[in-house]
Simulated scan of single mutants.
Amino acid sequence: MPLNTLLDALFPRGHAVAVNDAVLTGSASTDEGQVTVIGTADKLEVGVDHALTLAAAVLASTAADPRRPIVMLVDTAGQRLARRDELLGINGYFAHLAQTLDLARRRGATLVTLVYGESVSGGFLSFGLMADHIHALPDAQVRVMDLRAMARVTKQPLEKLQALSQSSPVFAPGVENYVAMGAVHTVWEHDLAQALLEALRTPADGDRRAVLGAQRGGRTLAASVAAAVVAGDA
Results as ranks from 00 to 15, higher is better:
residue 3 L to H: 06
residue 5 T to N: 07
residue 9 A to W: 05
residue 10 L to Y: 01
residue 11 F to Y: 12
residue 13 R to T: 10
residue 16 A to S: 15
residue 16 A to I: 08
residue 22 A to N: 14
residue 23 V to S: 03
residue 26 G to R: 06
residue 27 S to K: 14
residue 31 D to I: 04
residue 31 D to K: 12
residue 32 E to Y: 05
residue 34 Q to I: 05
residue 34 Q to R: 12
residue 35 V to Y: 01
residue 36 T to G: 01
residue 39 G to H: 05
residue 39 G to K: 02
residue 39 G to Y: 07
residue 41 A to Y: 02
residue 42 D to Y: 05
residue 43 K to M: 11
residue 45 E to C: 07
residue 51 A to M: 14
residue 52 L to I: 12
residue 54 L to A: 06
residue 58 V to T: 04
residue 58 V to Y: 06
residue 60 A to H: 01
residue 61 S to G: 04
residue 63 A to V: 11
residue 63 A to S: 14
residue 64 A to R: 03
residue 65 D to L: 02
residue 67 R to E: 13
residue 69 P to Y: 04
residue 69 P to K: 02
residue 70 I to A: 05
residue 74 V to P: 02
residue 80 R to S: 14
residue 81 L to R: 15
residue 82 A to Q: 13
residue 82 A to G: 07
residue 83 R to P: 06
residue 83 R to W: 03
residue 85 D to M: 05
residue 85 D to R: 10
residue 88 L to M: 07
residue 90 I to T: 02
residue 99 Q to C: 06
residue 101 L to D: 04
residue 104 A to E: 08
residue 105 R to Q: 09
residue 109 A to H: 10
residue 119 S to K: 02
residue 120 V to R: 09
residue 120 V to E: 10
residue 122 G to E: 10
residue 124 F to T: 03
residue 126 S to A: 14
residue 127 F to Y: 15
residue 127 F to E: 10
residue 130 M to Q: 15
residue 132 D to Y: 02
residue 134 I to H: 08
residue 136 A to D: 07
residue 136 A to R: 02
residue 136 A to N: 04
residue 139 D to F: 02
residue 139 D to Q: 10
residue 140 A to F: 00
residue 142 V to S: 08
residue 153 V to S: 07
residue 154 T to H: 09
residue 154 T to S: 13
residue 154 T to W: 09
residue 155 K to A: 14
residue 160 K to A: 12
residue 162 Q to G: 08
residue 164 L to F: 14
residue 164 L to H: 15
residue 168 S to H: 09
residue 168 S to W: 00
residue 174 G to V: 03
residue 176 E to R: 12
residue 177 N to T: 11
residue 178 Y to R: 03
residue 179 V to L: 02
residue 179 V to Y: 00
residue 180 A to N: 05
residue 184 V to H: 04
residue 184 V to F: 00
residue 184 V to G: 01
residue 185 H to E: 15
residue 186 T to V: 03
residue 186 T to I: 02
residue 187 V to P: 00
residue 187 V to L: 00
residue 188 W to K: 03
residue 189 E to N: 01
residue 190 H to S: 10
residue 191 D to V: 01
residue 195 A to L: 02
residue 199 A to E: 00
residue 203 P to F: 08
residue 205 D to S: 14
residue 214 A to T: 04
residue 218 G to M: 08
residue 219 R to M: 13
residue 223 A to N: 11
residue 223 A to I: 06
residue 225 V to Y: 11
residue 228 A to C: 08
residue 230 V to A: 14
residue 232 G to I: 13
residue 232 G to A: 10
residue 232 G to K: 12
residue 234 A to E: 15
